[in-house]
Design a protein around this nucleic acid. Structure first.
Length: 470
DNA sequence: CAGCAGGGGGCGC
DNA sequence: CGCCCCCTGCTGA
């Protein structure tokens, strides 16, 4: 269900991080190492130093004390200051005359990106974008990881960072490029942008979902089967940093666990919702065809009362948010009473999987009752009588003769809300309700009072308003 | 005011 | 007969 997974990007993450790091250094907050150089002391952070230099990293590994003092002898203060600025900010301005001296110091300290090839945390795609943003003169950039590996295989790390070779460009160039890239792909100030972003993120997904689509029949745009997260994209190289899909997977695992808990909780506590008290005793007699076939925990779900079922569907609205302006992710055709009309599950079940058809049956058990004989017919095949069948919900006392209403009612128990607002996270199970909801975004107030300028979004509001005039 | 859910009726197959 | 739309009323904030 890749459609339900969103990749959250902090637009200015790198810039913010660098800025905060520099600020912390200026304020000497959280510093845990002192670098002494030519009589001067610099309060810095192990994390930063070890990140930017394996030299420092090894020093800290072999220095268990909490706040070591590192005395640098072969480095001058201006060089150290430049290198610190480089490490904290990713960039430093240096006079051309001082460049060789700075590189020399960087070599001594094995500063990544300057004297030592930096590790490639960037994804390949990200690297490509960075590369594309560079001009020809940017050959100074850090060696490409693959090329670097070759070099490392032939020479020592020290040898690879030859002083004769041009100094690797500071990572800041990469940061800036990445930052711009993220800006272009992750702005989420509006849901429409979010839609665009998501559609652009998945290049293979060519279908946009304009409002009309959303308001229209979702069958045409629904996805019949959930697709796994974009793992194949993640496995390649190191996209983890950017896409965070692995985190989503983990969260899904968590959801699985919680779902199991919910299931056991529901079966134990029997929190009776609205339908509990009025539940038809006959509903307890489950036809064999509705016996749970998936696993025990899912079978428990079928016994859940409305409140629990709806809680399983997710009270936070996150699912709706996850679906966002996308089409609902999971697709749950409620076989037997949905008629394959493209009912969609925007509330993924706690297992992190869309409600399968069989699962849906487990969530809501519906049976038809012959009005004259009173015989139940779960398969809905007793049509030899002309009289309308009474469709009775097994989860509550709802009865109707209208199959459409019956199916619609089933949404209440399955938690399906196929109609999602393209302006916010709201979703509902009736299109008309979505229309009414969208009025709060559009400001439309179609119901005008004929006696005063009052206008209402709901006709019932107007009706109550009209009492004032009577 | 906004959300929710059920009823009625038109329309097409 | 089923789908879809609109209407309506109830409820809670």
């Amino acid at each position: 269900m890749a459609e339900g997974m969103l990749s959250l990007s902090w637009n200015n993450h790198r810039a913010t991080f660098c800025h905060i790091l520099s600020t912390l250094r200026e304020k000497e907050r959280y510093t845990d190492v002192t670098v002494a150089c030519d009589g001067k002391f610099y309060q810095v952070h192990k994390l930063v130093l070890s990140t930017c230099s394996e030299y420092f990293e090894k020093i800290f590994e072999n220095t268990p004390c909490k706040h070591p003092v590192i005395v640098l002898k072969d480095v001058q203060t201006d060089e150290l200051e430049a290198l610190l600025s480089y490490m904290y900010e990713g960039a430093v301005s240096v006079a051309q005359n001082d460049l060789a001296r700075l590189i020399k110091a960087a070599e001594v300290l094995r500063i990544k990106g300057l004297a030592v090839p930096d590790e490639p945390p960037l994804s390949e795609s990200c690297s490509k974008r960075v590369t594309q943003s560079r001009n020809a003169s940017d050959d100074r950039s850090s060696p490409h990881p693959k090329r670097r590996r070759r070099e490392e295989s032939n020479t020592s790390l020290q040898g690879a960072q030859t002083s004769t070779s041009p100094p690797a460009s500071p990572r800041v160039s990469s940061f800036e490029s990445e930052g711009e890239t993220h800006h272009s792909t992750s702005r989420t100030q509006s849901d429409s942008r979010w839609m665009d972003q998501r559609s652009s993120e998945r290049e293979d997904q060519s279908t946009d979902h304009p409002l009309d689509d959303r308001l229209g029949d979702h069958t045409a745009t629904s996805r019949s089967s959930p697709t796994p997260p974009q793992v194949e994209v993640m496995v390649d190289e190191t996209l983890v940093k950017e896409e965070m899909v692995d985190h989503v997977d983990n969260s899904q695992d968590d959801i699985v666990d919680s779902g199991m808990d919910y299931g056991s909780m529901g079966s134990d506590s029997r929190l009776d919702g609205s339908g509990g008290g009025e539940e038809d005793p006959s509903s307890q007699m489950l036809p064999n065809k509705f016996e749970p076939k998936i696993n025990p925990s899912q079978g428990q779900a079928q016994q859940l009362p409305d409140a629990v079922v709806e809680a399983l569907a997710g009270p936070s609205g996150m699912q709706g948010w996850l679906s966002g302006c996308e089409m609902p992710t999971g697709f749950s055709g409620l076989e037997g009473y949905s008629g394959g009309d493209g009912s969609q599950d925007v509330h993924p079940p706690p297992q992190g999987q869309p409600v399968s058809q069989s699962q849906a049956h487990q969530l809501v058990l519906l049976e038809s009752v012959d009005q004259r004989t009173g015989e139940t017919d779960a398969s809905g095949t007793s049509q030899q009588h002309a009289v309308p069948k009474i469709l009775r919900c097994c989860q509550c006392s709802y009865t109707t003769t209208n199959t459409s209403h019956f199916k619609r009612h089933a949404f209440r128990h399955t938690g399906e809300k196929p109609f999602s607002c393209c302006f916010c996270t709201y979703s509902c199970n009736q299109k008309a309700n979505l229309h009414a909801h969208i009025r709060i975004h559009t400001g439309e107030k179609p119901y005008a009072c004929s006696y005063c300028p009052y206008r209402a979004t709901h006709k019932s509001s107007l009706k109550s308003h009209m009492f004032k005039h009577r």
